[in-house]
Nucleic acid binder design. Sequence first.
DNA 1: CTCCGATCCTGATGGC
DNA 2: TGCCATCAGGATCGGA
Length: 270
Amino acid sequence: MPELPEVETTRRGIAPLITGRRVLRVVVRNPKLRWRVPARLARELPGQTVTDVTRRAKYLLLATSTDTVIIHLGMSGSLRVVPTSLAPELHEHVDIVFDNGYCLRLRDPRRFGAVLWTDKPSEHALLAGIGPEPLSAAFNAAYLFRVSRGRRRAIRDLLLDGHVVAGIGNIYANEALFDARLRPKRPAGRLNQDECGQLVRTIRATLTRALRAGGTTLRDFQNASGKPGYFQLKLKAYGRDGQPCPRCRITIRHIRLGQRSAFFCPNCQL
DNA sequence: CTCCGATCCTGATGGC
DNA sequence: TGCCATCAGGATCGGA
């Protein structure tokens, strides 16, 4: 489940390999992803040179002088730079072929990902309105306190809302709440300023540590070199139901919150 | 405005 | 052994 650390790990892996490379062609073996891969992509991109590889929330943005390719890894997506001659495997749906014999290859078994084209990224519906990056100064205690006022929804769900804060998925939301000693279902509007500050700090720390470990690999995630991340070894709450809390040894509990799992220690998270 | 459920998809897993 | 149901979940959409 690529969240911010996994997408950023992917960005760092592919950026040095494709920046400055000219696109020869785009091969779309299966256009049916979360949204249909636009035909315009294969028409417009050839001949253009990748000038920049950036990330916003969980979106990877490949920029040329005039266009931007938007890539989302969904739940099961991964990107690798491989020799163009290497035969694609099942679920390897899109290649962006470069002038040096290599291509950027998207694998996405569950096809929740996306490959889109835009010439005005700042106005694109998916990118406009995204909340602040959690590792930026704009995401701070005052901001979280302000946007959570009057909200009755569970704090776990507020953290998953990309319009509130970018790039956090279920794994890191649960982990940050564990470290902040806050229950996933606490109504967001009930957090005081100190708790908001604490949560901002644990979100930052969790994402930073995950980034250092190369992300979390539960099943599908692999970085641009095909290697897994290692943060799953450090998870304290997520997926650990029935096992002892690393703080107090009480058994970690699993509940269903909305449509998703939540994990917490019933003793030390309030 | 806010919130929640439904939706898209495939592969792994567990029960019978 | 095989079959079927369930679950994983990012982000949008529509309706309450």
